[in-house]
């Protein structure tokens, strides 16, 4: 029996993601401290923050890749081992494709691996092949489906990863800096794929350094600073010279006794 054969009905009003008091530490150094985050169905939430603020760690904690020292993470209302039966509903898009594979793999093969979350251990059905083809089409790579991933540009490789996540037809997409170092064409293709996912009722949680063409899609922003939530609400818009790359991080108007939203190290 495959995961998709077990229909999962969420109780109404249960958040898709519910993080409470999450604390994560690497080698005893706390990276996240008491983070709360609730994401409801249909929301597009951006997690912003400077390098090393802990925003990627928060995503890893939500996905169960970073162990919690304290607090809890619930996905679709399930905690602990109960998350297992919701795993196929989560599409994860990592920053980049691991350390790279030692053997060539085609776009189609990598995207088909994403479908396994929903397929379980049963043989593929036509619906599985259709879902893989649709996911590849959604990111505009149909003509490259039989090409090795290594022959693609960085931006195209990133699109392969979002297609892999979409192939499982998830309810929640979790993206870790999906547009970092991605060319404009790929950023637009990315935004299009995300837009159609959201219009289909999907929920998105995305870690970003810069939102770029994704900005209009985002309904709420969380700013993580030094492992804590510094802001939760509308997307804070850096204006004027703040928006320019490489601007000086001088905030003469900011009170020095509290953490600024765009604290030191924010380099966008």
């Amino acid at each position: 029996m495959s995961p998709a054969d077990t229909p999962v009905i969420d109780r109404p009003g249960v958040p898709v993601v519910d993080v409470r008091g999450a604390t994560v530490a690497y080698e005893r150094t706390p990276v996240l401290t008491g983070v709360d985050l609730r994401v409801s169905a249909g929301e597009v939430v951006a997690i912003l923050g400077p390098n090393g603020s802990g925003k990627s760690t928060l995503v890893k904690a939500i996905l169960g890749l970073a162990p919690l020292v304290a607090g809890s993470v619930a996905l679709f209302g399930a905690t602990g081992s109960g998350v297992r039966r919701h795993r196929h509903r989560i599409g994860y898009v990592p920053q980049r494709l691991g350390a790279g594979s030692g053997v060539p793999a085609t776009v189609g093969e990598v995207v088909a691996a994403g479908r396994l979350a929903r397929r379980g251990l049963r043989p593929p059905r036509p619906a599985d092949r259709d879902a893989v083809a649709r996911a590849i089409a959604a990111v505009g790579l149909t003509r490259r489906a039989d090409d090795p991933v290594s022959a693609l540009s960085g931006g195209q490789q990133q699109r392969v990863l979002i297609a892999r996540a979409l192939a499982a037809e998830p309810d929640l997409l979790v993206l870790d800096e999906p547009t970092a170092g991605v060319d404009a064409t790929s950023q637009d293709a990315f935004a299009d794929a995300l837009r159609s996912f959201v219009s289909g009722g999907g929920t998105v949680l995305l870690v970003a350094h810069e939102l770029g063409p994704l900005q209009p899609l985002v309904t709420r922003a969380i700013v993580i600073h030094s492992g804590r939530v510094a802001h939760d609400g509308a997307v804070p818009e850096p204006t004027g010279y703040h928006a320019l790359p490489g601007h000086e991080h001088v905030h003469p108007h900011a009170r020095t006794d509290r953490t600024g939203i765009w604290g030191p190290g924010w380099d966008q």
């Binding site: 995961p3 996905l63 169960g64 890749l65 297992r84 795993r87 196929h88 989560i90 994860y92 990592p94 494709l97 691991g98 594979s101 793999a105 990598v110 691996a113 994403g114 396994l116 979350a117 892999r164 499982a168």
Partner: peptide
């Protein structure tokens, strides 16, 4: 073998 982290998240 291709992406162990992803396989974890996908519940394999």
């Amino acid at each position: 073998c291709h992406d162990e982290e992803y396989a974890h998240v996908a519940g394999l």
